[in-house]
Computed example of a mutant assay.
Amino acid sequence: QLGTLPIVSIVLAVSFSLYGAVKKRLTIHPFSSIAFEAWLVTPVALWYLTAIDTTSWTFIENLTPTGLLLIGAGLTTSIPLILFSYGARLLPLNILGFLQYLSPTMGFFLAIFYFGESFGTAQLIAFGCIWVALILFTLSNQMTTRIKIKK
């Protein structure tokens, strides 16, 4: 429907897959991995805050409601990431990959049913293909597990 290759979609799919795989393989403590991630994105975040508005740093002096929300956003974001790090170490990679489809699907349903976003034939085909593939993957994984158990 776009008429071009959906580069952003491909980059997101690959980056989420790699993020889950790396989290699964890391042997460091989840708090350490989140701290390292925060350290990596801090320069970009500081540049962005400065680029938006040179007075955006005044919240530090006054602790305005917006400044408190900014601080709270960091804490609110870190909690799910830490929990994901714990879960990634405990779950098999195929289950972890499957679970990463749930959040975008919930956002998708929220966009359609709550915010009234358009949902045409192209979206239905894409959404259907994704979930049919996930169902086939899950069924094949279950069949493989049963065959291994019988041997």
Rank of each mutant, 00 (worst) to 15 (best):
Q1R: 10
Q1L: 08
G3I: 08
G3T: 09
G3N: 06
T4D: 09
P6C: 07
P6I: 11
V8R: 11
V8Y: 07
S9C: 08
L12Y: 14
V14P: 04
V14C: 08
S15G: 04
L18V: 15
Y19N: 15
V22K: 15
K23I: 05
R25A: 15
L26T: 15
T27G: 13
I28F: 02
F31L: 15
S32L: 13
S32C: 09
S33W: 02
S33I: 10
I34M: 10
I34N: 14
F36V: 15
A38D: 07
L40M: 14
P43D: 03
P43I: 07
A45Q: 13
A45H: 12
W47C: 09
Y48E: 02
Y48M: 09
T54G: 15
T55C: 02
S56H: 06
F59W: 15
F59Q: 05
N62Q: 13
L63C: 04
L63K: 09
P65V: 02
G67K: 04
L68S: 01
A73V: 05
G74Q: 03
T77L: 09
I79W: 05
P80G: 05
P80W: 02
L83G: 01
S85F: 01
Y86A: 01
L91I: 02
L91C: 04
P92K: 05
P92F: 08
N94G: 01
N94P: 07
L96Y: 03
G97K: 04
L99C: 10
L99W: 04
Y101K: 03
L102M: 11
L102N: 05
S103G: 09
P104I: 04
P104R: 06
P104K: 06
G107V: 07
G107Y: 08
F109A: 14
F113Q: 04
F115N: 06
F115H: 12
G116P: 02
E117I: 00
F119L: 10
F119C: 05
T121L: 12
T121P: 00
Q123A: 13
Q123E: 14
Q123P: 01
L124R: 07
I125S: 08
A126D: 08
A126N: 08
C129M: 13
C129Y: 06
W131H: 15
L134Y: 03
I135R: 13
I135P: 03
I135G: 09
F137D: 15
F137W: 10
T138L: 15
L139D: 00
S140E: 11
T144F: 13
R146M: 14
K148W: 10
K148R: 14
I149C: 03
I149F: 07
K150V: 13
K151M: 07
